[in-house]
Design a protein around this nucleic acid. Structure first.
Lengths: 176, 176
DNA sequence: TTTTCCATGTAACTCGTTACATGATTTC
DNA sequence: GAAATCATGTAACGAGTTACATGGAAAA
């Protein structure tokens, strides 16, 4: 929730935009970072307006539904800084939904477990190479850093899986 | 959602239990793995019953509200296997909510960024040592593996943060 | 001229959480 | 006799998603 607010405020801080524009940008460039949907963006934008963090201006072009151009207010800037700090400070616990399956892997024959995990590994590898191929964003340090962070964790995950798939048949129960 | 179902089915596969019991176990032993709340557990259990994956038996003890003892059915066992496989196969994208703050770190003075990140590092370290101190569960391989997985990712995250805090002041924009 | 793109939104729904309600039983 | 624990649940709410509705403009 807060992240969505932060993201929108951050985008508006860089530049005043209307909803459609924002949503396009998110879908095209930020799909790796967030999964916020159109309807949600519109709703949050609306709330941001009600809370005084952004101002709204209707800008008519031709006869089509007027664009609502959102601009960050000074209250919004303050809020933004608050949110960045909070977000930087806390290591929000990552959700490891995939680990619940792991917990029960004793229930499946080893060969089947290995096949499942190999599938998972394949998916992970593809995701890794997707990030590896993405060119550095360049002039915004933070964005590169964020992508680098994701990549780092993805690789760690991949490495762990590779190691696990290798050692599982040997019946080790390695710590480390 | 599916993970919650999987978790409950898995627990019932190991042993028939009533709601209160299940919830206690989750709160006491599984708080690292899931954040499912009591009300949710009761609701999912209920739905599992309606769907025929578990059978319910009211077991009266004295005059208190009767325990509803849930047992997995054969349909439930099949469902369980389905869910484990699915869960093992897919590397569900981890949510990197903390990265949105990272993206905007250019907006804050470096010194402040570093302080925030150090705070975050501290939190991470504590979480790591929490997992390090937890004794191996022992006789269920999968549980140990899952904990090991979390620990591995947590360490990777910590290492990345340490490295970042170190190199950020030097103005590098390292890839790797 | 039909499809795609621009641009807005709303209504219904799902999932999950919080907080409360109930009442018996055990423990202090 | 008060407090904690056992054992169930519901009601209200919040966040987010899906799917739909609307209609003009540009492109094919």
């Amino acid at each position: 929730m807060d992240e969505r607010e932060l993201l929108l405020l951050g985008m508006l801080k860089a530049q005043s935009q209307h909803g459609y524009q924002i949503n396009e940008f998110i879908e095209r460039n930020l799909s790796q970072v967030t999964d916020m949907k159109k309807a949600t963006a519109y709703a949050v934008l609306d709330r941001l307006g009600r809370d005084g963090y952004v101002s709204v201006e209707s800008d008519k072009v031709g006869n089509r539904p007027p664009r609502k151009v959102y601009s960050i207010t000074s209250a919004g800037e303050a809020r933004f800084l608050e949110l960045v700090r909070a977000n930087l400070m806390t290591a929000d616990r990552i959700k490891f939904a995939g680990d619940i399956g792991l917990m029960f892997l004793d229930e499946l024959p080893l060969s089947e477990v290995l096949e499942c995990l190999k599938q998972r590994l394949e998916e992970l590898r593809q995701r890794v190479s997707l990030y590896e191929q993405a060119p550095p964003h360049g002039h915004v340090l933070g964005v590169d850093l964020a992508l680098n962070h994701v990549l780092h964790l993805l690789r760690a995950d991949r490495d762990w899986l590779e190691h696990t798939i290798e050692t599982l048949p040997r019946g080790d129960r390695s710590a480390s």
